[in-house]
């Protein structure tokens, strides 16, 4: 197990290094002079020069790269052009809000998908199974930037149950979590169903039934335990994907997370902040994948043997 974890962690370095390189190159992909784009062509020459210096754009590319990597390792991602604060501070302030929203969406998705997936597998091809899977496909196809406004019209405008935007305690997280978690619950329902179907015909399940165990015991004690192993991987991967989905959800509901910060940074052409947000989201995604892999190897000991 230790070897597996070490090997998996070593594999992380080239990926993180690659991500850092890509994020560094982002600012250099800007067509023309990045400083012109950030400050506008009519900005004073002295301001342009100041910005060029503070972003170290006057240094050779290799030097800029080394400084960027060194800074990133120390947690120094530069200063926001718009807020005039260190990028890392802005990210650390906003990230907990995104994590809160993502966890809420994930919990909601699990609460919906587990019962639906299990029931659909147990009652395969029944009316309820067909309905659930149809709605699951509908959930996957429904864009969250459409679902969000629809929920707003229904629950905020017509029924007045929830606040329309902002962070006002637990009530304000419900609609963003539903918006973010719907596609996820649809994906997980399908996954739980197919995983349960694979397990349900295994010999040990037949044995459990032959022993005279109740159907509930067979499903929850024997089948579900094994069926959940691949589901955990999907949950881990989807948790990372939710971070990206949160960009849109946060924009719709004005949720003060890192996704909204990224869009605000793009709108104000605050490129150091854009770089910082992209880096923070992707590094978290890589780390979540690592944790998922390690957790998976604990749950299914066959993994580490591969």
């Amino acid at each position: 197990m230790k070897d597996f974890i070490i090997k998996r962690m070593l594999l992380l370095f080239p990926v993180v290094f690659g991500v850092l390189t890509f994020v560094f190159l982002l600012i250099h992909l800007i067509p023309g002079d990045p400083v012109d784009l950030m400050l506008g062509e009519n900005a004073r020459a002295i301001d342009k020069e100041k910005l060029r210096e503070s972003l170290r754009l006057d240094e050779p590319l290799a030097v800029q790269y080394m400084l960027f990597i060194k800074g990133a390792i120390k947690g120094d991602l530069g200063e926001s052009l718009y807020n005039k604060k260190p990028v890392i501070h802005l990210i650390l302030k906003r990230y907990p809000e995104t994590i809160k929203l993502t966890i809420a969406a994930m919990v909601l998705a699990l609460l919906i998908s587990l019962p639906i997936g299990i029931y659909s597998a147990v009652k395969q091809y029944s009316f309820m199974d067909n309905c659930s899977m149809f709605f699951a496909l509908l959930g996957v196809s429904m864009p969250n930037f459409w679902l969000g406004p629809l929920l707003m019209i229904l629950f905020c405008v017509n029924l007045g149950w929830f606040p329309i935007s902002g962070d006002e305690g637990l009530r304000s997280i419900v609609l963003p979590a539903i918006t973010l978690g719907t596609a996820m619950s649809a994906i997980l329902s399908r996954m739980v169903r197919s995983s349960m179907l694979e397990v349900i015909n295994e010999e040990y399940i037949v044995t459990a039934r032959a022993k005279g165990l109740s159907e509930l015991r067979v499903i929850f004690r024997h089948a579900l335990k094994n069926a959940l192993v691949p589901v955990i991987t999907v949950v881990g991967l989807q948790f990372g994907a939710l971070l990206a989905g949160a960009i849109i959800t946060e924009t719709i509901f004005s949720w003060p997370g890192i996704g909204r910060l990224l869009i605000q940074a793009i709108n104000t052409r605050d490129y150091p902040l854009v770089q910082g947000c992209v880096l923070a989201i992707s590094i978290s995604y890589v780390l979540i994948n690592l944790i998922t892999d390690i957790a998976y190897s604990y749950i299914d000991p066959r993994i580490k043997l591969r």
Binding site: V15, L26, S282
Partner: peptide, 18 residues
């Protein structure tokens, strides 16, 4: 592996932003 480290449309957002 590096490209897969950017979840969902994050990379597309970053690219179109610049």
């Amino acid at each position: 592996d590096i490209l897969l480290a950017f979840p969902g449309i994050l990379l597309a957002i970053a690219m179109t932003a610049v």
